[in-house]
């Protein structure tokens, strides 16, 4: 087991609560995918959400990002109650999500994906046309600022490798997410090298003061990157730990239920 940065994990982080979810429930027909989704994310930290397949992680994430409206439960952002029923509402609150499927349109170019729904326009009065040049230039800056190398913003996403696509989706979230970035298994589909790069990117975001909620079922990765961990089992949030002083075996036990929370 390794740690990311001794100064970061030596003591529990002291940031205030940015996002608090309590008792979120979500059913699809007769299937209760989420029975008690609870998580607290402190400002400026990387918080991990772990659990087995089907534990409800992705459903909880989709409730936080406005893709699903929770049936019940409480969501506080900066201490104020919020309710997201559409992705744009979460976006407006500064929460961006790197979905497991990345939510990129393959037929569009990199810059089009980065600016979709935030298009820059120029023109007079109500007659607005897309400012393509500006968007291309700024998209290239976005990519450059995170030191990810995507082969040109005019490339269609279809032409990019898995790691490059992941990078585009992360760049988009990091750029527009003014308060928080949620990443749903950002390395699940990646190879060893690409995983290392994405992990470096996540550390970089944290260095910049962004708050990250990381969904993963790679416990080693969680211990490397996160400050705190929330554990889900069978649709419920069952445990909360600081990664400092927690071992991989502890996490395995919590996820499987061998260790009761």
């Amino acid at each position: 087991m390794t740690t990311t940065d001794p100064t970061a994990t030596a003591a529990p982080p002291v940031g205030d609560d940015l996002l608090v979810a309590r008792g979120l429930r979500k059913s699809f027909g007769s299937v209760q995918a989420l029975k008690d989704g609870s998580v607290t994310v402190r400002r400026g930290t990387v918080t991990a959400l772990i659990g087995d397949n089907g534990a409800g992680k992705s459903t909880l994430v989709r409730c936080l990002s406005g893709v699903h409206a929770p049936d019940e439960g409480e969501l506080l952002l900066d201490g104020k109650p919020v309710r997201f029923t559409l992705p744009e509402q979460a976006q407006a609150a500064g929460i961006e999500t790197v979905h497991q499927d990345l939510a990129l349109v393959e037929d569009l170019t990199v810059w089009q994906n980065l600016y979709l729904t935030r298009e820059l326009t120029r023109g007079l009065g109500p007659v607005r046309v897309l400012d393509r040049r500006q968007m291309r230039a700024r998209a290239a800056e976005m990519i450059g600022s995170l030191a990810v190398n995507v082969p040109g913003v005019t490339q269609r996403v279809r032409r990019l490798s898995g790691g490059q696509r992941q990078a585009v989706s992360i760049v988009r979230a990091a750029h527009w997410g003014s308060s928080m970035v949620i990443m749903d298994e950002p390395t699940a589909a990646l190879g060893v090298q690409e995983t290392a790069r994405v992990e470096a990117l996540i550390r970089d975001l944290r260095e910049r003061g962004l708050t990250v909620l990381l969904i993963s079922h790679n416990f080693e990765q969680v211990l490397r990157l996160a400050d705190e961990v929330w554990v889900m089992r069978a649709g419920r949030s069952v445990a909360h730990r600081h990664t400092a002083g927690t071992s991989g075996e502890d996490l395995v036990g919590l996820v499987t239920g061998a260790i009761s929370a």
């Binding site: 030191a147 990019l160 090298q193 992990e199």
Partner: peptide, 22 residues
Amino acid sequence: MTATDNDSTGRGAPSLVEQPGG
């Protein structure tokens, strides 16, 4: 998945460079 050379990737400019195509 195991830990992959995590310390060396720490602060260095993370890059997802790869040649296009292929």
